[in-house]
């Protein structure tokens, strides 16, 4: 499975995909994009990495275990929901400390979704690869 072409391609594509994923996440506020697609693109990048260099290498490149990623994502999303009541509003209400830059609790929530998607998709992909 590890041909030279795939490995070279993966090496070139990996940073591009990661950048594109983050770009989609940040773009998602008012335009097509968002945490889910962004997360999928990033997960696809690591899936590609595991195709080219094996699952162990992909796990190393990810730095954090998918389990931790999922947990952190859930925590961010839940935290963004709880900031509403902390600021005297309803659960999940949006707070906008810097609206002109698009920074607020929805971005935090989206970041959570981003991490959860990466974590869950990679858990499944890695499990499948390791079983094959």
């Amino acid at each position: 499975m590890t041909s030279l072409i795939l490995r070279t391609g993966a090496r070139v594509l990996m940073p591009l995909l990661l950048l594109f994923g983050v770009f989609l996440l940040l773009r998602g506020h008012n335009e097509p994009g968002g945490g889910f697609v962004g997360g999928l693109v990033v997960a696809a990048a690591y899936a590609l990495h595991s195709f080219a260099f094996g699952v162990a290498a992909a796990r190393r490149a990810l730095l954090v275990s998918p389990r931790r990623l999922t947990a952190s994502g859930l925590l961010l999303a839940l935290g963004s929901g709880l900031l509403g009541p902390a600021g005297g509003k309803e659960f999940l209400a949006s707070l906008w400390p810097a609206p002109e830059m698009g920074i607020g609790t929805p971005l935090l929530f989206d970041l959570g979704v981003f991490l959860v998607v990466i974590g869950v998709v990679l858990t499944m992909t890695f499990t499948l690869f390791e079983e094959l």
Binding site: R67, R68, T70, A71, L74, L75, L78, G81, L82, P85, F91
Partner: peptide
């Protein structure tokens, strides 16, 4: 919202 938040928080803590 507590019956929803508490299990989710527990699941998160359990993952960490």
């Amino acid at each position: 919202v507590l019956p929803l938040v508490i299990p989710l928080l527990t699941a998160i803590i359990l993952l960490f």
